[in-house]
Amino acid sequence: MPTRAEIIAFDDSPPPPGADPWVPGAAPGTGIEMTEPDPGWPQRYEELAARIREVLGWRVLQLDHVGSTSVPGLPAKPIIDIDLVVADPGREQDYVPALEAAGFTLVIREPWWYGHRALRADEPPRSNLHVFGFDSPEPVRHRIFRDWLRGNPDDRDRYADIKRQAASEANARGEHVMEYNARKEQVIREIYQRAFAAAGLLQE
Rank of each mutant, 00 (worst) to 15 (best):
I79C: 03
I79P: 04
I79Y: 08
I79A: 02
I80L: 07
I80R: 03
I80A: 05
D81F: 04
D81E: 03
D81A: 01
I82H: 00
I82V: 12
I82M: 04
D83M: 01
D83Y: 02
D83I: 02
L84A: 00
L84K: 00
L84F: 01
L84Y: 00
L84T: 05
L84M: 01
V85R: 02
A87Q: 06
A87L: 04
A87M: 00
D88R: 13
D88S: 12
P89A: 13
P89F: 00
P89W: 01
P89G: 09
G90D: 01
G90P: 05
R91V: 04
R91G: 02
E92S: 09
E92Q: 14
E92P: 05
E92N: 05
Q93N: 11
Y95G: 01
Y95M: 12
Y95C: 00
Y95V: 13
V96P: 09
V96A: 08
V96I: 15
V96Y: 09
V96D: 07
P97M: 11
P97S: 07
P97D: 05
P97I: 14
A98Q: 11
A98M: 13
L99Y: 04
L99D: 03
E100I: 11
E100N: 12
A101V: 10
A101P: 03
A102F: 07
A102Y: 04
G103C: 01
G103E: 04
G103R: 02
G103S: 03
F104C: 06
F104T: 04
T105Y: 09
T105V: 12
V107E: 02
V107T: 10
I108G: 01
I108A: 06
I108N: 02
I108L: 13
R109Q: 05
R109L: 07
R109C: 06
R109E: 08
R109G: 00
R109M: 06
R109Y: 12
E110M: 09
E110H: 11
E110V: 02
E110N: 04
E110I: 05
P111S: 06
P111F: 00
P111M: 05
P111L: 08
W112R: 14
W112I: 13
W112T: 09
W112M: 10
W112G: 12
W113D: 06
W113P: 13
Y114K: 08
Y114W: 15
Y114M: 06
Y114L: 00
Y114H: 15
Y114R: 07
G115T: 03
G115L: 01
G115E: 01
G115M: 08
G115I: 11
G115H: 03
H116Y: 10
H116A: 08
A118R: 10
A118G: 07
A118D: 06
L119K: 12
L119D: 04
R120D: 07
R120E: 14
R120H: 13
A121P: 04
A121D: 09
A121F: 07
D122F: 05
D122R: 15
D122N: 14
D122H: 10
E123L: 13
E123F: 06
E123V: 14
P124T: 10
P125H: 03
R126M: 15
R126K: 15
R126V: 13
R126L: 13
R126A: 15
R126T: 15
R126F: 14
S127V: 07
S127C: 15
S127E: 14
N128G: 10
N128A: 14
L129I: 05
L129R: 05
L129D: 08
